[in-house]
Design a protein around this nucleic acid. Structure first.
Lengths: 337, 337
DNA sequence: TTGAAAGCGCTAACAA
DNA sequence: TTGTTAGCGCTTTCAA
């Protein structure tokens, strides 16, 4: 904070450019002088101003990540994955949470652009096209999370949610369930929409009618799930099984049932999404390789940052996996499914 | 990315300083010209370069937070709290995780100083004094998390861990437990040490001998807890109750017991710390007002950033609260404790 | 091998 | 009310 490159120049009797050269370990500096400079730097504890450096270099050595809520282990894991590869490139990362609010999304994005971050990883509302367009205009490399970005002309990585939901639904059907509900996430969540698609696909294939009274909306966290659980408890005609938008929502439902003296899966079968590891309840869930997704996204991003500006856009799909534990009750035994 | 303030100046036929004046809504600009400028800015989608602005202003409009692991809801909540007040001041926040590694702590701190962040909130190893000293020299405002920073001459906010642990231990004793274990966190975690202190205090008061074989170390997350759980299962002389460093560790222990066909609290009583809300198991735990702690830390920090540089250091203690649920088994009924 | 000077995009006196 | 100018702390030609 106190010293500048000029100070170091004066103290060593050299010029700024020489100091700069040793700071950036450029060749062509006498070993002697180099040592001298380094020594002074060390002694006075000089740390170069990255803002000045960035202004000159037109790079900030930081990337931004816009997520919905780090409080959800899903996003926390992504963050850690991104941080790991960022760290590897000596980058810092700015984190912003939107809670799915579009207005915040735009605002935070603008802020990141203002900061001239070198890249952005984002998980936006499906229909926040305006922000994406603004981002494109800014020429800042970015990768879109959890949605197919090809139509946006962008790199993207996402899980095969539709397939995952399809498999989960088929599993429920195999276990004898017909009255199957879905507790969806936020309206503009593309994940949630894809999961709903998968469920409907399975319904179609197995001739099950879609029943709107089994469907719940706008549940993204534990509290929301708890409320849905309470509503489920009130229901006259209750689904026998429910697929929750994510594990947190599932946990909320389970909590509500437990609190009411009911138990899972005796009174309701529940399937989650994400397979977050801090779930102690033996929840059957669709596992998503979230850490790997974060890594992939970050790698894609740094690929763009260093180098190929005009490489064709990549679209990475990760497969999900149904983890069968103990939250689904078999409704009947059947010999030939 | 494309336009600079000079571009806007040219396009409007005005000077840079006038543009700057309207950008910073400084008074003394003709309403007419102001409108004209704003219009052009809007039209070409000009977003000022915050690095240049920061270089000139010697501020970055960003703060940094150094935590152990956002994957732990404890830190995630803190982050959200800090983010909220930062956002309120139009600040962004850089997040770095250390996993408790001192070398990383120093490195990340240096990086934040290099970026000239306007303030830092940190949760470091108890004995990483070197980093704190370096930070002090940098003159960047900071607040220390979870430890008493008065001896460091710094603002700090922390929970009364010792008291919390004391109460938890006394509760166990009241329930008839005598063989009480502690699964501690990382060696350099001041929280963990304080919790141990509280436990020992209770032991002293109630004449219970400290038994090293009931003590476990270096457990910070669910996996660690799981392993401790497995070791507990092997133990010949097992404690009847265990206090876990945090809820994640408690969850791991519970998971291990459940996996082995044992159950909580029948086979082991468990008390956690933090009261993270995504715990569906009815865990008795010491609740910590973590969100409030984050808010307080952030408010302290912004207080320093804007204004009083030489206000006396504040030390904010938050009280914990034992939340009794259903993970402790009463060993006997006693009329007079 | 080192230094001088211009420039990165903005702010802030001071002048006009 | 607006413009001129110097400067923030660094990098980077180009000369020496």
């Amino acid at each position: 904070m106190k010293f500048t490159i000029s100070d170091i120049a004066k103290m060593t009797g050299l010029s700024k450019s020489t100091i700069s050269a040793v700071l950036n370990s450029r060749p062509g500096v006498n070993a002697q002088t180099k040592r001298r400079v380094l020594e002074v730097i060390e002694r006075v504890n000089y740390i170069p101003n990255e803002m000045a450096r960035g202004l000159s270099n037109r790079n900030s050595a930081t990337i931004g990540i816009i997520a919905r809520d780090v409080t959800n282990p899903f996003y926390a894991k992504i963050f850690r994955a991104v941080e790991k590869v960022a760290d590897h490139h000596s980058y810092s990362v700015l984190l912003s949470n939107t809670d799915g609010d579009m207005e915040r999304e735009s605002r935070l994005l603008k802020s990141l652009i203002g900061k001239r971050v070198d890249g952005i990883i984002l998980d936006l509302n499906e229909d926040n096209l305006e922000s994406i367009l603004e981002l494109k205009k800014s020429k800042i490399p970015f990768v879109v999370f959890g949605t197919n970005g090809l139509k946006l002309q962008a790199d993207c990585v996402y899980a095969n949610d539709t397939k995952g939901a399809f498999e989960a639904t088929e599993y429920l059907i195999q276990q004898g369930h017909r009255k199957i509900g879905y507790v969806s996430g936020q309206k503009n969540s593309i994940y949630s929409r894809h999961r709903m698609d998968g469920i409907k696909d399975a319904f179609l294939k197995h001739d099950i009618a879609y029943n709107g009274t089994y469907m719940f909306e706008e549940a993204k966290n534990l509290e929301d799930g708890y409320q849905v659980g309470q509503r489920l408890l009130q229901l006259q005609d209750r689904p026998t099984a429910v697929i929750a938008y994510n594990d947190l929502v599932a946990a909320g439902i389970i909590k509500a049932f437990t609190a009411a003296g009911r138990s899972i899966p005796q009174d309701l079968s529940v399937v989650g999404f994400d397979d977050i590891d801090m779930m102690v309840f033996p929840l059957t869930t669709v596992s998503i390789p979230v850490y790997e997704m974060g890594e992939q996204a970050a790698m894609l991003l740094f690929d763009r940052i260093h180098g190929n500006e005009d490489k064709p856009y990549a679209s990475i799909t990760m497969d999900t996996k149904l983890i069968v534990r103990d939250s689904v009750r078999p409704l009947h035994l059947q010999s030939n499914p």
